[in-house]
Design a protein around this nucleic acid. Structure first.
Lengths: 231, 231
DNA sequence: CTTGCATGGATACGATCCGTTTCGTATTAT
DNA sequence: ATAATACGAAACGGATCGTATCCATGCAAG
């Protein structure tokens, strides 16, 4: 018998919205099942890693059939994409604190706590290579999560400049790298991710970004040839 | 027929030296074969990634039998470990240049060029998750490659302080994170890895680490609560 | 030189997991 | 009620894993 073609995954992802009639005939898909699979996938992914993850284990833990997973998502990558977007979203925003250092510290602490204290940590570890190598997972992640963080930090830097705390030419293009890069470096390559660590990163970056003090003579030791100050 | 037990992998790894008599009876293993497998593994790993890598493909490209690979290494992880150590080693050292900024720039450019211009780039991308998650691969990598880089950068900072270019209390514990973290951040999450990028990272870090200028009044805008300045 | 033994390459094997298909049942819209 | 779809379970062919087996090759000890 020829299988009907209407059994393909259709679920909305965070980025690519699958076109599908808002309402269909017949039994609608269960949100409960969708959530159960996503939760089970997160757990198994954190324990087994992406490569060794068996969708049969996910199905078993979610209490569903394996085929049901394939009805909701086309692949492991699609599942990972939705999970990543969902877990990363809450840790982007930096509250306006009125104080530049507090906001910069939040820009470091947010991703740091995300990877140490939330399920996002094991998940991002498991998916680092996929993000770095596989465009179907990496491109959406960069376009949404990473870009959102860049935008947020750009606003923090902008407010700091407006307050006169940061130099007007503070390099906003590399601010995310300087503040968040160290966190991911330690996530991968070891080293404690403590509040003290975050403070020290902020100390140095803020000093590098600090507005020249009135009465200060020289703009610090920049022997820089500076092909910088970019287009 | 019971298989003899003397057919287990014995090859030296960079870290764990397998005990094995220096000389055995019979035909010795071929270094040519060992190298051919490593090279083929590097190529296939860069193209297919770690999870999807098939040792049969590696064997075919190396012109050897699959079983031969298992005679030399116990697993894919063991192969990856040896390859990583071999590829990473050449990009650690920072030449003494007499100029602090030049040396800091080298500390950024070395890993940057390694990931953009050498086979180390595709390999480290493919292995990021394994390093972050799998201790059998991550621990040796941290103990050798990462630690060597930390030590090298600590020497650079030390020389900068001695020259009076950097403040005496420059935070050496996070210098590697500030200089190399941004490179790996962009490797994973996108953004150009250009000489200009490296220059700008160094500009900011060096300003943050700069020795206070004689005649300068304030030590920059540090509202820092500072539980820092650590044990 | 001869003899002994491990290597190297090839092939086959059982086990496992993938993604799909099929089937009976459950749940909804029309 | 009827049609259409989702759900859970089971089974499928195909692919890949790591190992075992085979034979010829090539060093080294005697």
């Amino acid at each position: 018998m020829i299988e009907s073609e209407q059994d393909a995954p259709y679920r909305k992802s965070a980025v690519v919205e699958e076109s599908r009639p808002a309402t269909r005939k017949g039994r609608p898909r269960s949100d409960r099942v969708h959530r159960a699979i996503l939760d089970a996938f997160r757990e198994v992914l954190s324990e087994e890693g992406f490569a060794d993850l068996r969708l049969e284990h996910v199905a078993a833990r979610a209490g569903v059939g394996k085929a049901t997973i394939y009805r909701h998502w086309a692949s492991k990558e699609a599942l990972a994409q939705e999970l990543l977007a969902e877990l990363a979203a809450p840790h982007i925003a930096v509250a306006e604190a009125g104080d530049t250092r507090t906001e910069l510290l939040a820009a470091v602490l947010n991703p740091m706590r995300a990877v140490t204290d939330t399920p996002f940590g094991p998940v991002i570890r498991a998916l680092l290579s996929q993000i770095a190598v596989n465009p179907t997972l990496g491109d959406p992640f960069r376009a949404t999560v990473v870009q959102a963080r860049r935008d947020e930090i750009a606003r923090v830097i902008g407010r700091g400049i407006a307050r006169g705390d940061l130099r007007p030419d503070a390099d906003v293009d590399i601010a995310t790298e300087l503040l968040v890069g160290p966190v991911y470096f330690r996530l991968m390559f070891g080293g404690e991710l403590s509040r003290d660590f975050a403070n020290r990163v902020v100390d140095t970056v803020m000093r590098g970004y600090a507005a020249p003090q009135p009465g200060s003579s020289s703009p610090a030791a920049s022997t820089s040839p500076k092909e910088s100050t970019r287009p």
